Deep mutational scan, measured.
Amino acid sequence: GMDVRRLKVNELREELQRRGLDTRGLKAELAERLQAALSGPSSG
């Protein structure tokens, strides 16, 4: 899988935006949010 901790802030935001998620917050928050999205149930 993707290691969200290795991504830069702008990369985290890009991935979040692609999934329609909130791109605001600290890098740690963005990484946590993206990780949750990646490990969560895949819809679609």
Rank of each mutant, 00 (worst) to 15 (best):
G1W: 14
G1K: 12
G1H: 14
G1Y: 10
M2S: 07
M2D: 07
M2H: 08
M2K: 09
D3L: 09
D3S: 08
D3G: 06
D3N: 10
V4K: 03
V4P: 09
R5Y: 14
R5E: 09
R6K: 15
L7Q: 03
L7W: 10
L7P: 02
L7K: 04
L7N: 02
K8S: 15
K8N: 15
V9Q: 04
V9N: 04
V9M: 12
V9I: 15
V9P: 05
N10S: 14
N10L: 07
N10G: 09
N10D: 10
E11S: 05
E11M: 06
E11I: 06
E11F: 05
L12A: 00
L12D: 00
L12N: 00
R13H: 03
R13Y: 04
R13Q: 06
R13G: 00
E14V: 10
E14T: 10
E14P: 00
E14C: 15
E14Y: 14
E15H: 06
E15N: 03
E15K: 04
E15R: 05
E15W: 08
E15L: 09
E15A: 09
L16E: 01
L16Q: 00
L16M: 02
L16W: 01
Q17T: 08
Q17E: 11
Q17A: 15
Q17V: 07
R18W: 04
R19H: 05
R19I: 05
R19G: 01
G20P: 01
G20Q: 04
G20V: 00
L21K: 03
L21Y: 05
L21H: 04
L21W: 03
D22Y: 04
D22G: 05
T23G: 05
T23P: 09
T23F: 07
T23N: 06
T23Q: 05
R24Q: 09
R24V: 07
R24K: 10
R24D: 07
G25Y: 01
G25F: 02
G25A: 01
L26I: 09
L26Q: 11
L26S: 15
K27Y: 11
K27P: 08
K27I: 08
K27V: 07
A28P: 07
A28I: 07
A28Y: 09
A28V: 08
A28Q: 10
E29R: 04
E29M: 07
E29P: 01
E29A: 10
E29Q: 11
L30T: 01
L30A: 01
L30S: 00
A31I: 15
A31V: 15
A31G: 04
A31E: 10
A31L: 15
A31S: 06
E32A: 15
E32V: 10
E32Y: 08
E32M: 12
E32Q: 14
E32D: 10
R33L: 03
R33H: 01
L34I: 02
L34K: 00
L34Q: 01
Q35N: 08
Q35E: 10
Q35I: 15
Q35C: 13
Q35W: 14
A36H: 09
A36K: 12
A36G: 06
A37D: 04
A37F: 11
A37T: 05
L38W: 05
S39K: 12
S39H: 13
G40H: 13
G40N: 13
P41I: 13
P41T: 13
P41L: 14
P41Y: 12
P41S: 13
S42T: 13
S42N: 13
S42Q: 14
S42R: 07
S42K: 09
S43F: 12
S43T: 12
S43V: 12
S43Y: 12
S43I: 12
S43A: 13
G44V: 12
G44S: 11
